[in-house]
Design a protein around this nucleic acid. Sequence first.
DNA 1: TTATAGTATATGCGCCACGCATACACTTAT
DNA 2: ATAAGTGTATGCGTGGCGCATATACTATAA
Lengths: 213, 213
Amino acid sequence: MSSGFWLAHCLLTTPRARKGFNLLSMLGAHKDVAMDGTRDRNIFGAFALMIGDDIVRASSSRAPEAGPAASALALLAHKPGLSIRMLAVGVGLSHAGAVRLVDRLATEGLIERREHSTDGRTRSLYLTRAGKIASDKVLASRDQVIAEGLSILKPRELKILCDIAERVLRSRLESLEQSYRICRLCCYEGCTNCPIDAELLERGVDRENDDDG
Amino acid sequence: MSSGFWLAHCLLTTPRARKGFNLLSMLGAHKDVAMDGTRDRNIFGAFALMIGDDIVRASSSRAPEAGPAASALALLAHKPGLSIRMLAVGVGLSHAGAVRLVDRLATEGLIERREHSTDGRTRSLYLTRAGKIASDKVLASRDQVIAEGLSILKPRELKILCDIAERVLRSRLESLEQSYRICRLCCYEGCTNCPIDAELLERGVDRENDDDG
DNA sequence: TTATAGTATATGCGCCACGCATACACTTAT
DNA sequence: ATAAGTGTATGCGTGGCGCATATACTATAA
């Protein structure tokens, strides 16, 4: 069997050939046999999933309960006075679920409901002192897990990665609600010149002075 | 008030000054006022969390039920014959939870339990034809969401990002069990020359020919 | 001003996935 | 052969969640 025949045979019979791979891409590629980027996306997806899982696991392990409690604490540290409605969106819960979450966290003395300054319906949520401590623990463990994950990267690579992250974040930003989800575990003090805020401002939304929370 | 006094004043009184920022880092940095990387980690964390959330949401929205079902289908497409024990680890469920998940998916005709070739205790799990279709939908939506997320990047940046991802994945790999979690939503055909497999092999673990699944 | 619609929060209710503990089947070591 | 270890299955209780609804308040319109 000639090598040419073998190549053609493979191209026609392997699963890879049937999934859109072609001769040109096979001849032109070095490490990545398929130049269509499937492998890149696969590996990057695993990477993002691993880091994301680590972030969620590390942060919620420091929270008083599993699930969205960690995000709620961090979000309230970021934006004191948040309403229950926006909290619900930020942590990805239904409104009723958020009310119950606030109930539990309030019972534990971590957050408190106050009257809204202008709207009698809205409750403004604030961290208590104990809540601030809990939130700090959550954020610290998140920061640590990211630092560990990226510890093998050189400072220059970190910069490149951060630059890419920043541009992707800005381009994929859809709405104010989504911005709360994205930033739900971010550290306020650490996010100097936050790209999400900047992008929202460019679009005419001022998240920082948004008193409806 | 001289500018020098003003600078010193800020350094001593702003929250930023109290959190480890110093004069040197302020003078030396351009965009990132703090050179300690806090902002980089913050932004990258938001980035990873957003992509990770998108992956989970997109894939599980194509699955017959929310939660770990999508991961289970993808994992079984990747490794047919997987045991319930390893499936449980891969999708992050207790053993009992995995048994129930398998019950539901089997009732829906998506997977089936077969006898293990050598071990009478172990059940080998396989996708049915319908399960393969469902799994393909899950993987396709994952691939699409990643492609959309990275669509603004130039091919060269994609390569850099993938290279970083690959190295971080290999360096952060801890165990065979963790590798199943990391790859739980990966596409088998798309992951040519899988870095996780390569890393495991270097460490003397052969995930591909692991019949205990 | 009054009436109506819209919005924010709270709650009754039921569901279902989950984990713990246990039981059973089978394998491996002594 | 007995004991210990491992994989799977199940009874049971728990708890967070969403749906639908009730209540309070705001905003708009006649």
